[in-house]
Simulated scan of single mutants.
Amino acid sequence: MAAAMSYETGGAGGGGGGGGGTLSDIYKNATKLLLRARDGIERLERLESSTSSGGMDSPELSFAVKKEISQIQTLCAEMDRLWRSIQSKPQRDLWRRKVEQVSEEAGSLKESLDRYLTRNQRRMKEAQERAELLGRANGDSAHVLRIFDEEAQAMQSVHNSKRMLEESLSTGAAILSKYSEQRERLKRAQRKALDVLNTVGLSNSILRIIERRNRVDRWIKYVGMIVTVIVLFFLVKWSS
């Protein structure tokens, strides 16, 4: 245990490398760099959020963050070599977990930075393409505006036709519903009339007249429904 403690705080076999000489010093430097890199990533993301409303990008900051992450990974490699030389197993396991945590955080920051750089490159490419498109269309702006206006008019016409068609279908459905209600009322009236006629004992000739009238009314109803369907068909054909 004494050998492990002396190694951690000052022994390290002279292998501290670029982190201060001892495992503790290298770890402290790595954690400081982690904090700075994490802060840099957050600043880049804030700049990215403001870029959509006119903010500015910071290539210098992204380069500095990338350099810090690279330094952290170098220190992790050095710490990984050093903790394996510790004699005490508990201390060795403790430092292994610490080094793995720093390495994982560095990897996560690198992924965040890579995603930011990818998004930034895509935005730059899109901005360049927009500039080229506007440059090519500089002399044809009136033509482009006319095309947009025609497209807007066409869309409005389609919208109006769709609304008229929906209103026509709704009206047709209401008419058919009324016809159905009238049919039910006629049936009930017919049953009541037959009951009354049977009660008063009217002749069969009067009953036949009533039945013929009922058939005529039914044909009138069917003709009305057919006319409604034809009108709806022509409205749909006209709107398309």
Rank of each mutant, 00 (worst) to 15 (best):
E48F: 06
A77S: 13
A189C: 03
R36D: 15
L75H: 01
A154G: 12
G19K: 01
S177L: 12
K98R: 15
K125F: 13
S203A: 03
V144K: 00
P90V: 13
L75A: 02
S168Y: 12
S170G: 15
K110N: 04
I69Y: 02
L44D: 01
W95S: 03
E105R: 08
S50T: 08
R191F: 04
Q101L: 14
M5K: 13
V227M: 07
V227Y: 06
H143G: 07
I175E: 06
C76W: 00
N204D: 12
G40L: 02
A193Q: 05
K178T: 15
E167N: 09
D80E: 10
G20K: 03
T51M: 13
T171K: 15
T74D: 02
L232M: 00
G55L: 02
S177P: 07
E150W: 04
N204K: 06
I69M: 03
S52W: 10
S239D: 14
V196E: 13
K125H: 14
R185G: 11
K162E: 11
L186M: 07
P59G: 07
L186F: 07
G40Y: 02
L134F: 10
A3D: 13
E184T: 05
S240D: 14
Q101V: 09
K192N: 15
Q128R: 10
N214R: 15
L23F: 10
D80S: 13
D25C: 01
L61Y: 05
